[in-house]
Design a protein around this nucleic acid. Structure first.
Lengths: 364, 364
DNA sequence: ACAGCCGTAGCAAGCGCTTTCTACAGGGCA
DNA sequence: TGCCCTGTAGAAAGCGCTTGCTACGGCTGT
């Protein structure tokens, strides 16, 4: 049926072993022999049998990239960047070595699917796995993930976190690139406070996610530092702070509805901070829907600085995360092309981008 | 080292064959035996060796989804929908059968990478491949793709096109879901014409792509039908039509720059039609940057109706493509869960969404 | 009561590669 | 001239699983 190594060997009048060695380039082969083999490969249009190869060599060239939501550019940008570092040398025809199959797997934010994908990847004996985005904080799930990653790791799979905080135990993970969500959140709210805002509504992401919590903690740090809403710490916030916080998924609809809710709870809010830019878009729509102007009546801010944010009207004040750079670095780490940061953990800075959607509150 | 089928067999006191049959559920096994085996699997935390399994069975559970730009929600939405249909029954723990590993591969629009991924998938003996989005029209590349797909197909891989026109020859492809880009483009321009616009700038996508061409052809059909810019057909358009068309990649920057160019070439344009919503965002920014108001001075329209379009200010008039539905259907087709449309080709309707970014031109 | 089945389980032969070990031809050196 | 080393190629033993075929016990049918 399909062409096998043996067929190529026969045509090139060498042994299968030699063909294998030519293809893998990991053993000296005389130039004339190599040419003969390569010609035979071309003539027969031979394609290596991946499973057989992986079985015999006990390794595969699959690299998995797990994302929470593939339709969200936040993940798309990171995944694309990672993939570009993994997918072999440039986009050349290169039948050369390092060719890996970088694939992205969409968990939809579901812990069960995350685990399923990890198992599938383990089954394929993946060479590396990159986990992107915030993690669920449920201890049961976290333990399951840890265990799974440990097994993957000692089967030789390299594990990299990208935009995801390190595991409590550390353990199996080769490298963690974590965004400074807390710092970014803090600086964003500081900016608002410094403009004169006091009543700031916060549209948070889904509960129990590290990203959500860190950004929210940064926000509250800034609020408290400004002497607003007294003491209290992460878990026990001042009641007014709780009242001005609404949780929801990371999508525009959630931003829209949460903002309406916020405006209802306290018609006096002068600023809305959203969990991310997509949510901020929905928030902005809700604000305008109430007949309020941005930023004159209500300031709106996002997080991530996705490409569309600069084109929003008015241009969105947000926190820039170097998604592309982080994804690319994660890809290199996964390939072993870059040495991990000291301690295996790197924190990636988040930069405040002040644009036109925030301004001082209306006096009076 | 790692646990093998034989280990499980030993622990369950059965033969490896029996374990395999329990796991695959394709052969009668006594209930008591099955239980024993499953317990052993759990006890040992056994995970099937995918490559070995694929080798022996001559099939794999990999399904590849090729996209042009993973950071673009246009593709993300389709890919996510397809993946959700492929990834097994719900997100359940399901160690059940149909579990496939749906993976998305980002070609970045590069023909070479597209081919590379196809080869990699062929190497893995993928169960199915879904190709999404417009295709390059270069005959050489098209022939290469056709040949590759033919080989994949007769190695048993199911091929599905989603949002991509059928191959000239038809051939290997099991099913093609094609968007009615031409019709959508036509209706969009008809809408503008009916509002009274005559000088309409067109920011087209990259050359030599089916999507670009079809949308542009639809636009020109409408222009000619309105008696504007005389005759001429697809390839030989009226010079003025050419002058009001600028090509560029599918990103906001391209939209921005192309629009500036269009405004320079003819300061009298009263409407800008963009290749897609992302480009339209950039176009809108350029229009405003020139001190012009949307839609009072210049109308702007997009294509795709991505989620953010409704939140643009003003809300974007565009053409809605049912990306999620199409992706899901493609996923089902790839899994063989749905019978292909007659002739293997289905055209998916595109619906005009009139919103606030288009209005009659200023009289005088 | 015996032949024949049906329901289960095991045997063993691969699937198409990789890789260790062995073989062999030249060439350099003493 | 003879020996050993280097460079190159082949033989063959798996890698861990699937599956066609065989085996065997107990039931059914007559």
């Amino acid at each position: 049926m399909t062409v096998t190594l043996a067929d190529v060997a026969a045509r090139a009048r060498v042994s299968p072993a030699t063909v294998s060695r030519v293809l893998n380039g990991n053993y000296p082969v005389a130039a004339s022999t190599r040419d003969r083999v390569l010609r035979a490969v071309d003539d027969l249009d031979y394609v290596l049998n991946g499973p057989a190869s992986s079985l015999a060599a006990a390794t595969s060239d699959l690299v998995g990239i797990l994302v929470n939501d593939i339709a969200d550019p936040f993940f798309g940008i990171m995944a694309g960047a990672a993939q570009s570092e993994i997918g072999g040398p440039g986009d050349g025809s290169g039948r050369a070595g390092g060719e890996k199959l970088a694939v992205v797997c969409n968990t939809g934010g579901s812990p069960a699917r995350e685990l399923t994908y990890l198992t599938l990847l383990q089954r394929q004996r993946a060479a590396a796995v990159v986990l992107t985005g915030g993690a669920l904080e449920d201890p049961v799930h976290q333990a399951a993930i840890s265990a799974k990653l440990a097994r993957l790791a000692d089967a030789g799979t390299r594990i990299v976190f990208c935009g995801r905080p390190p595991l409590p135990g550390g353990g199996a993970v080769a490298a963690s690139l974590a965004f400074d969500n807390r710092g970014g959140g803090r600086r964003l709210t500081e900016h608002l406070v410094s403009l004169g805002h006091r009543r700031i509504g916060y549209v948070a992401g889904p509960r129990e996610r590290t990203t959500t919590r860190h950004r929210l903690e940064g926000h509250r740090e800034a609020m408290r530092a400004a002497g607003l809403y007294g003491e209290g710490n992460g878990s026990t916030a001042h009641p007014d702070l709780e009242r001005l916080t609404v949780h929801g998924p990371y999508d525009r609809r959630s931003g829209y509805e949460a903002t309406l809710e916020l405006l209802r709870r306290d018609p006096g809010v002068t600023a809305i901070v959203a969990a991310n830019d997509t949510v901020a878009l929905g928030a902005g729509a809700a604000v305008r829907g109430q007949g309020l102007r941005i930023p004159q009546d209500v300031s709106v801010a996002g997080f991530d600085d996705l490409p569309f944010s600069v084109d929003a009207v008015p241009a969105l004040t947000t926190v820039r995360l170097p998604l592309f750079e982080a994804g690319a670095r994660a890809g290199r780490l996964a390939m072993g092309k870059e040495t991990p940061p000291p301690g295996g953990i790197a924190t990636i800075a988040a930069e405040l981008m002040v644009r036109d959607s925030t301004a001082p509150p209306r006096t009076g």
